[in-house]
Design a protein around this nucleic acid. Structure first.
Lengths: 246, 246
DNA sequence: GCGCCCACTTGATTTCAATCAAAGTCCTCC
DNA sequence: GGAGGACTTTGATTGAAATCAAGTGGGCGC
């Protein structure tokens, strides 16, 4: 193995939102050693890590969607994060996973062996700063979600989730806000429920209600179109600006 | 003004949990310039920043307690974080406050002018790394709270909050776990409600219930003692280990 | 000492979402 | 094509917390 400018080959086609450490897409240049990195694929439904597992790598999502969740003793579970392409998983300086990480679709991850990665962080200030930025974004997102979980009604929760997915989807497609949007839900009703702190029945009922009232249109169970994004935003309870990180 | 090793004078008596960038208490040595730092005092109840305010500083809490909260259009509010002595406030690279920050007690903050602080971050890798660690801790705490908000019952929420405060208090006093603990609640019933995603009436009822059943004892409205910490932990719904960052 | 205010408690009632239960739909695999 | 299973919808009922509505109690200024 030789030293290469990491990512300039393997990550050439990384998604728009890719903002991870293996970065062709980033303006700041990070030079990593090829040898600390490797790819792993997880199939849909597969558990990537259980809480308490020893993890000898950190990783970024190349493609697919994974979830972070926590569970109470009696089995109640709460999703605490979504990992989308470009998102970072694992914590430098911590061996153990603190969440259950599950692939909801097929997931490809770009893994970095822990020790060399931590060493790299020490010697490459850019990496720590990049990770700090990303972690601050995640913290904002988590806090936004706290507001949703603590204070929003079921209807507002559903509308918020749909708005977030729609908006993210729109930004991927570079279509403009305000018009009609279409997308596929990447989550089952149960996963939505776990994310929103609801039951799957309530999720189903509220989705049906929004459909009945024309706020959204459903084609099949998962394909959604939003005729009027502003109308949807009205249902979220939010001030209708605020960047809402995802 | 002259260059000094920051913190070695001013922060000599910082609390045990002080883990901020002005660190005598830390093992890693950070040298900051005296001139970018200044102290500010806020009185109890005073708003330190409103969402959207321009903030020209970042800061660490020296003493007192402040809260971070978010509000929906119709006034429902959710507290998304507590700032305790040593906690960091503000985000490098962002001008605007994204939360309402309120002093619940008298608060002394050690402020750093934004620009020089950001410059310092670029030139002093330790700072970015320290901030990254702290931010990761906050993220863990936020996600722990998501589980609480999304899935715990009112009773479990109250027990969790009391357990966290009791534990933190115990660690400050270096008393051992398992025995009887006493502490003063630093929050009103309303603030507890905002933190837990409940109403103040529900908080009051559940506190009364825990008292009635002997899980806690009340002296006055705010002074609480916990005869059996393990008994309290049973009420939280958690696995009874897990470091639970605060 | 008196009254006032604020934080808190307690009670009655309502409401929203959970729970329990039963179908319905779509997809895959034989 | 039909059976089986995963996912989803819908209905009936229950239940936990919100809401509405009085109180209580303690600290403080006058």
């Amino acid at each position: 193995m030789q030293d290469v400018e990491f990512g300039h080959v393997e990550c050439a086609d990384c998604p728009i939102r890719h903002r991870a450490v293996c970065s062709r897409c980033e303006t700041d240049e990070l030079v990593l050693l090829e040898e600390i990195k490797y790819y792993r694929t997880f199939e849909a439904g597969q558990t990537i890590a259980w809480t308490g597992d020893k993890l000898d790598f950190v990783a970024t999502v190349v493609s697919g969607i994974a979830t972070l969740s926590q569970t109470l003793e009696d089995g109640r579970t709460q999703m605490v994060g979504l990992l989308l392409p470009s998102d970072f998983m694992g914590r430098p300086g911590r061996e153990m996973a603190t969440y259950d990480v599950t692939a909801t679709t097929e997931v490809v991850m770009c893994c970095f062996r822990r020790r060399p990665f931590e060493e790299l962080m020490r010697t490459t200030p850019h990496i720590a700063q990049r990770l700090l930025e990303m972690t601050l974004d995640e913290l904002d997102a988590a806090r936004e979600w706290m507001l949703l979980l603590g204070r929003k009604t079921a209807r507002e929760k559903i509308a918020s989730l749909l708005a977030i997915i729609a908006r993210r989807d729109a930004s991927l497609k570079l279509s403009k806000a305000g018009g009609s949007l279409e997308f596929d839900l990447p989550l089952t009703r149960e996963a939505m429920a776990d994310y929103l702190g609801l039951t799957l029945e309530t999720v189903s009922r509220q989705v049906s209600a929004l459909k009945r009232e024309g706020v959204i249109e459903l084609a099949g169970k998962r394909h959604i179109s939003v005729p009027d994004f502003d109308r949807l935003m009205l249902e979220t309870g939010d001030d209708c600006d605020g960047g809402m990180p995802f």
